[in-house]
Amino acid sequence: MAGKSGRTIDATPKTSIKSRVLSWESGLIVIFIAVLIFGSIVSKSFTFSNVLREMPKYLSELFMMYAMGFILVIAEIDISVGAIVCLAGTMTCFANRAGAPLIVQIIVCIGVGFLCGCLNGVIATHFQELPTMIITLGTQIIFRGIAEVSMGSGGSVSLSDTMGFAKIGGMVGPFPIAFFLIIIAAVIFIFVLSRTTFGRKMYAVGSNRTAALYAGIPVQKIRQICFTLVGTMAGVCALFLLATSFGANTTTGQGFEMDVIAMCVFGGIATTGGKGNLVGATIAGFTIVCLRIALGQLNMSGQTILVIIGILLIVSALIPGINQSVKNRRKAIAAK
């Protein structure tokens, strides 16, 4: 039924080829391919099988990246995930040394992550006036503190029985097990965010929390879920990290929170919430992983690699702004 004026409103979705080609994701694919080409030029060992073999070391972070994507979409932030990785890793090492079966160790690892995330969520939903940056800054210190206290004066703890974790870090054919699980996680997280009503609720909370509340969306429940999820995924991250490092120390997981936030932002997710998607973040994550592998093969130090990734991040964050100002200028010319 049309209104009184008989005006009709168009409801056919339009996605032009041009907008697809010019999208952020396709830009990322170009960068990804460029990184691959760059890698194979500068390093002889940058081959398909080598890259896959080296990947597990870097892949564990990606598990957290997906959940961090959710956190950023709802306009929150969690900087305690690195500390959660450390705590979960430490506790798992103790379980291992106590001779617990592998399945119990896995439950401990993911369970510690779950509880830490849950705690963040409970604080965030019960003290809504506190910025989550502050909350997770506090819990970060607490989590890392507990880990360091339990490690004792040595400042590190290692697995005594590495059999099980060697299997977790193993390969299926040419692919590491972690790689398969990342792909599965990617499919699930991307599906939830882009295809389900829950995904839209997250965007609503991130775009305008008040309007979301008035529209009947359980804002606090969604925040609780997202914080619990990112903690849990930090536990998963710790699991795969142990499978390559076989131990934890006081620096385990340090800087991981910034790494995953950087991947998300590089992937087009705005820290202000409500924008971006995990397809972009996936490509961005793999781009950064491959870049690290390539630069690592050149025996470049970890610190130098960080500088390069930092520059890449800032440049990528600038591009949308430049794009917009070009568009505005064109419009202004058209109006004259």
Partner: peptide, 22 residues
């Protein structure tokens, strides 16, 4: 999994936006 029913959503949105003559 509560997958968005985008076709139905568009149809409803169009109907009601026209009804109030937006």
């Amino acid at each position: 999994f509560k997958v968005k029913n985008e076709a139905k959503e568009r149809e409803l949105a169009k109907k009601y936006l026209e009804e109030v003559d937006t």
